[in-house]
Simulated scan of single mutants.
Amino acid sequence: MRAIFVFCLLILSVGCAQPAKLTKINGVSFVAHRDSVNQKHIKPVVNLNANYAAIMPFGFIRDLNHPEIVFNTNRQWFGETRTGVKQYIFQLKKEGIKTMVKPQIWVGRGMFTGFIKLKTEAEWAVFEASYTDFILQFAEVAQETNAEIFCIGTELEGFVDSRPAFWFGLIKKVKAIYKGKLTYAANWNEFNRTPFWEALDFIGIDAYFPVSDSKTPTVEACLHGWKKHKADILTVQQANNKPVLFTEFGYRSVDYSGRKPWVSDRDMNQVNLQAQVNTTEALFKTFWDEPWFAGGFVWKWFVNHNDVGGENNHQFTPQNKPVEALIKNEYAKKRHYKL
């Protein structure tokens, strides 16, 4: 009788199994370099208390209407190529850093990838074949290197909106090659209409949401600015029952950093270190303790730590700025999410 009782308890415990509790993803967007990396380049990532790095191989197209992607050539920087991605992952894993492989497209003259939209069915066919080749080659790399996460695309809203069937087919092809976790990096204003979240493991968002119009936004103002966006994110999260991952997040150290966080124009050049700190602190306070929030990758982290960033820099990198200490402290906290 006792054996039957124990057996029934086991059955009940399996039936009521809780979601897996996993360590929060505290990541950096590890920018490709012309050379290989070594322990010296990885140590600052470890010192930040990061546990993940996004590795970003690039493919290039001439303009928004050009259907062929050029990638993995000897004219590219080493870190953008297949060999370079493997070398970066190998070095990061030696230091205990997990990885997400995140292939991205660069459009000539820096035009926004979300506007890619081919004119004819024939051009779409060429582009889809080229993109499939690009993604599957790096899915192979992710599998060969045991990368923990693979991202199938970044900020391609026009492509996704126009060709949803292609993406469902691509996901099946990726899953035939790569056996880890999958996501897509949706832009902040496209994630709520991305059609294939149910087929992936994370709802990926490049989190450049506007949160304040102030020159130096306060933490409190940014917390208020996040309320509607957080509610929208939670609606999508609950509809798909998948954790949310900020595939990119961050702010420039510049005046009005919370107004249009996606803007990288060089004419915005008034350094404001406190604005970067306040906007970043509000983001952590809003999301990092939520059990449905998996974590994120700060944009962006350069290889040669001592030579970048600093208190006169008005770009995104947190390196050698006051916000670096904030991120280091937040990443040190023991937080979890459920998958």
Rank of each mutant, 00 (worst) to 15 (best):
K328D: 04
N47S: 13
I97W: 05
Y184F: 15
G79Q: 11
F202Y: 15
P164W: 03
V126D: 11
P164V: 03
N189S: 12
F302E: 12
A122E: 15
E148F: 04
T235D: 06
E190W: 07
K179I: 01
E290C: 03
E220G: 01
T83N: 15
P291D: 09
V323K: 12
R62V: 10
V28K: 06
T99W: 11
K21M: 09
P261W: 00
F209M: 12
T132A: 08
A165H: 12
V45M: 07
P103W: 00
W167M: 08
R34A: 15
E248R: 00
G309S: 12
A165D: 15
G295W: 02
E80K: 12
L182G: 06
A139F: 07
G225Q: 03
V70C: 09
V271S: 10
V211L: 09
F58N: 08
D307M: 14
Q319K: 11
V244N: 02
V85A: 15
Y131D: 04
S29T: 05
M56C: 13
P322V: 04
I69P: 07
S214R: 10
N304W: 13
T154I: 05
G96Q: 10
N240R: 13
K321W: 10
H41I: 00
Q238S: 13
E80P: 09
G110V: 02
K228C: 00
E95R: 10
D133N: 13
L200P: 12
T218V: 12
